[in-house]
Structures are given as C-alpha cells and as structure tokens.
C-alpha cells in the first residue's frame, strides 16, 4: 500500500467511526437540548438551547415526588443487582467447577427459560405474589429477577478462565470450597463482577412492564413508571418529559462511566 491509499483508508475509517459515534450520541444531545426547550418547540423539532429549563424542572418536580421515586428506583436496582450477582456467580461457579450429569440437565433447563417471553408469565407470577402477600412491595419486583439465566450463563463462561491451579493449591492448603469461592474466586474475578454489575443494573433500572403490574401505590413507583405516565397524558408537557428522561438515564450513565475500565476487562474475560 502506498502512502496515498493508506491515508485514504485512514480518512474513511475515521469518517465512518466519527459518523457512527455522532449518531450514537446525538439522541442524548437532543434530550439535553429538549430539557431546555418548551413543549411546543420540542414537538416542532427545534435544534438549539432554549430558556425553559427551570420551568421544565419546576413542572416535573411539582407533579412528581422526585426524591422518593428516585430512591425507590435506586433501592430496587441495587438490591436486585447485588442478589443477582451473588446467586448467579455461585451458580455459574458451581456448574462449571463441579460438573455432573444431573447438574448439566438443570443447567440446560435454566437456559431454556430464556426463550419464554415475559408477557406469558405475568399472570401466574401475579397470582403467586398475591398469595405471598407481596403485591405493592419492592420485593415483588426484585424476587423474579434474581434467578437470571443469562447472568448464570455469563458467569459460567467467565469461570472457564479462572485458573484451576489456584483452586487446586487452595484445596491442598485445606480451604473449604466456600472459602475458595469467597477468598480466591471473588477477588480474582473482580472485573467479571463489574461487567455483570453494569448489565444487571441497567436491566433492573429499565425494568418496566413487571413493576408496572405489581406496584400499585404512588409511594412505591419507580422513575421509569413516572416517565411513562408523564409521556402519555392527553396533553403531555414534553419539557418535563425530557427532564424526567434525563433523570432516568443519569444513574446508568454514571454506573457505566465509573466502572467502564473493569467492564471492558470483564467482557474480555467472559469470551475467552
């Protein structure tokens, strides 16, 4: 390749990547611009910064108890994510390290549950929550998400990269299996946990249909439910909707940026 074609190739690479990056980020910019514009300007597609930001924030804060719904979402997402990571990493480790014919069957059965659309499970789940007396509690939202087939699969794949020499050495030293898991596996797999944390936190934060069904009172609602309710009024105030959308996006963005380095490392580990 001569210098000219190389430069041309580089130009196209950067141009293409630049365009893709711009397209990916643009809706976020649009959202931030929207939050500063009036409802009518947003629907008209105005590009640019407006002066209605404070009005929009005020409109949003007066119709919604913002700290409460925000806290509800954070609480649900954190508890669900923590429990999911514990349960799924135990299972992923267990399935990979202690192999047996019966456990492989259980594992296949678990993977099969991925195929069933959630809408089909809602009515049976709701009846169950009613019997358990959990309707309108945050536990009803959290419990069905903890046993996640996808995250178990992810941990099992990542465990394949966990060096078996470490385990053998620990066994020789007389460590119990749960000690090996807790004292060696968990610290070594930090970045795997980080990647899983981001994925599970995002899923839990954006969970919409199921919380909608089981949460009944205003005091229990999450931010996602609030955005949806604001956006579907007869005469929606899109300025307030944009402010609420920013608030609904912010925590996942923060989690992602804080844990980004570990996230990429964790992903690399999972596909080895």
């Amino acid at each position: 390749m001569d210098r000219f074609t190389r430069a041309l190739a580089a130009f196209f690479t950067y141009a293409f990547l630049g365009i893709m990056a711009f397209l990916s980020v643009f809706p976020f910019i649009w959202m931030v611009m929207g939050a500063t514009n009036t409802s009518i300007d947003i629907v008209k597609g105005k590009v640019g910064i407006g002066s209605a930001l404070m009005d929009n924030i005020r409109a949003f804060a007066t119709t919604v108890d913002v700290p409460l719904v925000f806290w509800n979402s954070i609480k649900i997402a954190l508890i669900a994510t923590a429990l999911t990571l514990i349960v799924a990493s135990l299972a992923g480790y267990g399935f990979e390290v202690f192999r047996s014919k019966y456990r492989e069957r259980v594992y296949s059965a678990i993977l099969l549950t991925l195929m069933v659309p959630f809408a089909a499970l809602m009515i049976p789940l709701f009846i169950m929550m009613g019997k358990l007396g959990l309707i309108d509690t945050h536990w009803a939202v959290i419990l069905p998400t903890i046993g996640s087939a996808f995250v178990i699969f992810y941990f099992r794949q990542s465990t394949k990269a966990f060096p078996s020499e470490l385990r053998d050495a620990a066994r020789v030293d007389g460590l119990k299996e749960w000690q090996i898991f807790l004292l060696i596996y968990v610290p070594v797999m930090r970045s795997t946990y980080a990647a899983a944390f981001i994925i599970v936190f995002m899923a839990s934060w954006n969970n919409y249909l199921w919380p909608l069904i089981v949460l009944q009172s205003n005091e229990m609602k999450t931010i996602t439910l609030v955005v949806s309710s604001l956006a579907s009024a007869y005469y929606p105030d899109f300025g307030a909707v944009m402010v609420s959308a920013i608030l609904a996006t912010l925590p996942t963005l923060i989690v992602f940026f804080v844990m980004q380095r570990q996230f990429v490392q964790g992903m690399i580990g999972s596909v080895k």
Binding site: M122, I123, F126, I127, M129, G130, I135, D136, I213
Partner: peptide, 10 residues
C-alpha cells in the same frame, strides 16, 4: 391482570 389473578385485595 389483577382481576384475572383473583387477588382482589390489591
């Protein structure tokens, strides 16, 4: 959903 499940208390 609630009517179908028969969980009338909610």
């Amino acid at each position: 959903t609630t009517l179908a499940s028969g969980v009338t208390t909610s």
